[in-house]
């Protein structure tokens, strides 16, 4: 069944010139496998179709179970030139967490009660 990424991962974003970066961190080993397979550069580009006018670059950081995306030309001119409310792409991380991925019905991810922190 489909689940939004916020059930599997957490994220943070910020500006990179006229683009943004979105870091996406898997909550568990199972979530990492799903994210690695399904959260591809084209999928992210499609999710941000109206916001990101340029290409999407994707990097993997396995030791952190994280993906890093660069969304080029996504800030309407960048930090100080932009007329947008979100001129620095601070919202992009939250927006990526709305994206849906397919999670197998027998996955332990379904058993996770909350949206899962990694504790103190």
């Amino acid at each position: 069944m489909k689940l939004p990424l916020r059930k599997l991962a957490h994220a943070r974003s910020g500006d990179k010139g006229d683009g943004s970066n979105v870091g996406l961190i898997a909550q568990s080993a199972e979530a990492w496998t799903i994210i690695q397979e399904q959260v591809t550069a084209p999928a992210v580009k499609a999710h941000f179709a109206s916001i990101c006018r340029g290409s999407v670059l994707r990097y993997e950081i396995p030791t952190l179970r994280a993906l890093n995306f660069i969304l080029k030309d996504s800030l309407g001119g960048g930090g100080t030139e932009s007329l947008k409310t979100d001129a620095q792409g601070k919202a992009h991380g939250q927006l990526l967490l709305y994206m849906e991925v397919e999670v197998p019905d027998d996955s332990p991810i379904h058993g996770v009660e909350s949206e899962g922190s990694q504790g103190t």
Binding site: H10, A11, R12, S13, G14, D15, K16, N21, G23, L24, I25, Y59, I61, L64, A66, N68, I70, S117, Q118, G119, T120
Partner: peptide, 19 residues
């Protein structure tokens, strides 16, 4: 809170090519 989660999020903040 300082956790693996909070530190991971800050590590990927404003990141370009991680390598």
């Amino acid at each position: 809170l300082v956790s693996v989660g909070t530190v991971s999020e800050q590590l990927v903040y404003e990141m370009g090519d991680p390598s």
